[in-house]
């Protein structure tokens, strides 16, 4: 019996075939794939609309096979709001970094979440401004060295790193908020489930959904891809515990780590 070769893992249709501009080992690429897999699995590529931020993923529209808008820095949630309100039948998602969402775009994300806008936000947290060369971000850890806090972040002067999911969870409006990570296959598999669940909630017009994805930045962390993986595990996760912080199903918060 001649058994046919079967492909069991390949590029999702929602992802273009382009070589990305991301640095070697940068897990933006993984997150792109997870979003694309979700669009494929839910069969919504042809009615999807992505909103790209300003930051490393400003060129995200080159890597997805769906319509895209490019937002001014931090304003993606506002663009998504405007679009989704006029086209509730389409699946709208913003893809934003920590500088874009937690710094200049803080007002937009908080108010979109509070209005319960029915789009999905993929929030990539790598604790640094990537595209502009490694400056301190609102999510930079205490003592973490960046190009604008070369002696390590001094929280006495710049405040503590911001936990976005917990901050948004404090809003009364229902939402699905979960923090995941993509530094190991095991975490990637869990991240995929969370991202897909977020898009599912959007298809059901259930609530605002945001997935915070802890991601590596080898170049600006000054580490090899593997060292970056370890640093994420050893330093980022303790400060940014993984898990679902808010879910319209249960509404009671699960603070346990993965």
């Amino acid at each position: 019996m001649e058994s046919k070769e079967k492909i069991i893992f390949t590029r999702p249709e929602s992802l273009t075939d382009r070589i990305t501009h991301y640095c070697p080992g940068c897990t933006h690429g993984v997150i792109h794939r997870l979003v694309a897999e979700a669009l494929d699995n839910l069969g919504v590529r042809e009615k999807a609309l992505g909103v790209a931020p300003v930051g490393c993923s400003v060129l995200a529209y080159n890597y997805f096979n769906c319509d895209f808008l490019e937002a001014p820095h931090g304003r993606a949630p506002a663009l998504a709001t405007g679009f989704k309100r006029l086209r509730p039948d389409m699946i709208v998602f913003t893809y934003q970094g920590d500088g874009d969402l937690a710094s200049i775009g803080m007002s937009e994300i908080i108010h979109s979440a509070n209005r319960g806008e029915k789009f999905t936000t993929i929030f990539v947290n790598n604790a640094v401004y990537g595209m502009t060369g490694g400056q301190m971000a609102p999510t930079t850890l205490e003592g973490q060295i960046t190009t604008t806090c070369p002696q390590g972040r001094n929280v006495a002067q710049t405040g503590q790193p911001i936990r976005m999911v917990e901050l948004l969870a404090a809003l009364v409006t229902p939402a699905y908020l979960e923090r995941v990570a993509v530094h190991t296959p095991q975490h990637i598999i869990k991240a995929k489930r969370a991202i897909q669940k977020a898009f599912k909630y959007q298809m059901e017009a259930r609530c605002f959904t945001l997935i915070e994805v802890l991601s590596t930045c080898p170049t600006n962390w000054g580490k090899t891809p593997e060292e970056a993986i370890n640093w994420l595990e050893d330093d980022l996760i303790p400060y940014y515990p993984l898990g679902c912080k808010k879910d319209p199903e249960s509404l009671e918060r699960d603070d346990g780590a993965v």
Binding site: S3, I7, I8, G29, T184, K192
Partner: peptide, 29 residues
């Protein structure tokens, strides 16, 4: 063993995994 872990890890979707007949399903991806 066609477990796909390499492809799952790859940030650049550079790896395609194929198998013949039975394949390992350690987890659902």
């Amino acid at each position: 063993i066609g477990c796909k872990i390499c492809a799952i890890t790859c940030p650049d979707v550079a790896i395609e995994v194929h198998t013949h007949g039975t394949s390992f399903a350690l987890f659902e991806y």
